[in-house]
């Protein structure tokens, strides 16, 4: 989600609401000896804050039933974003910037954590999609990454065999009569070196998710290694060597995609449980405060 010019009306309304709230709060706070949640104005701010939190929580329900025609989900998302943000100043106005008690202190901190995590999430949703698009041209569906990785490993194994086959074109598939007349060097040392590199570096790299410790994770190092092999081997072997290099690059990008995807969605592991706790405690606080 990009926070672009289409969010402007929401931003204006939110800022206006904060400004209005401030206009109400400041005189009230100056006139009242102990401003707090129990006063009329305080209760009003508290009700508004709770209402905004409950509305924000409805987004989960809205997403749970995506085909219900009760307003486009993107509108609900924008409302969640801006009205959810508005809940924080409303809470601060309600509490008069004080937390008098354990429950209220917890609520204050929960509100701050939820709003801050939400802002962080919004920021990540604003920036990371573009980062993924730019840095991961080989992007695939996240759930398919393990499947693609296996396919890459299988393909690389076939290409590795091609490297040695291309060195003996007279015996390999596609051999031509002309090639049979040439004297082809066996290149045992180079072939052994390549096989060792493939077995010890490429295969473990492709098999393992992430594999950060593997040197092939470093693009520059990988390029250098493959360039060396291209220098050592004759021209017919360059194509499969380059193909293996491309496979490693694809794997590198899929690792990057997985990392960015976890970031893009991982913040919800903070936001959601804290939001649930906030709603629950806020309701308890409201019932308790009104009853007693």
């Amino acid at each position: 989600m990009r926070i672009d010019s289409t969010h402007k009306p929401w931003m204006i309304v939110t800022l206006a609401a904060i400004a209005l709230g401030a206009l109400v709060y400041v005189p009230y706070a100056l006139r009242t000896p102990v401003p707090g949640g129990g006063t009329g104005i305080g209760l009003m701010f508290g009700s508004v804050a709770l209402g905004l939190m409950l509305f924000a929580a409805l987004l989960s329900l809205r997403k749970r039933f995506p085909i219900w025609r009760i307003g486009r989900t993107k509108i609900w998302m924008r409302a969640h974003l801006w009205l959810g943000f508005l809940a924080l100043p409303m809470v601060l106005f309600h509490s008069a910037f004080h937390a008098r008690g354990v429950l209220t202190a917890v609520l204050m901190w929960l509100t701050i954590i939820v709003v801050v995590s939400g802002i962080a999430g919004a920021w990540m949703q604003h920036t990371l999609p573009t980062k993924i698009f730019r840095e991961v041209p080989f992007e695939t569906i996240y759930d398919q990454i393990p499947v693609i990785r296996k396919q890459l490993a299988a393909e690389a194994a076939v290409r590795a065999v091609d490297v040695t086959q291309r060195l003996a074109p007279a015996t390999g598939p596609g051999a031509t009569v002309v090639d049979t007349l040439l004297d082809i060097p066996t290149m045992e040392v180079e072939t052994t070196g390549f096989d060792k590199f493939f077995a010890e570096a490429v295969t473990p790299y492709l098999a393992q998710e992430g594999a950060r410790k593997n040197e092939l994770g470093n693009r520059e190092w990988a390029r250098e290694q493959f360039d060396n092999f291209r220098r050592e081997f004759p021209q017919p072997a360059w194509e499969p060597i380059s193909a293996i290099e491309e496979i490693c690059e694809e794997k590198r990008q899929l690792d990057q995609q997985a990392r960015l995807h976890r970031l893009l969605h991982g913040w919800l592991l903070v936001h959601l449980p804290f939001s649930a706790a906030l709603i629950l405690l806020a309701v308890i606080h409201a019932i308790g405060a009104l009853s007693y």
Binding site: T6, K63, I67, T73, K74, Q125
Partner: peptide
């Protein structure tokens, strides 16, 4: 439905 349900106008 897919367009209607997209939360990010994408």
């Amino acid at each position: 439905s897919c367009v209607y349900a997209c939360p990010h106008d994408a």
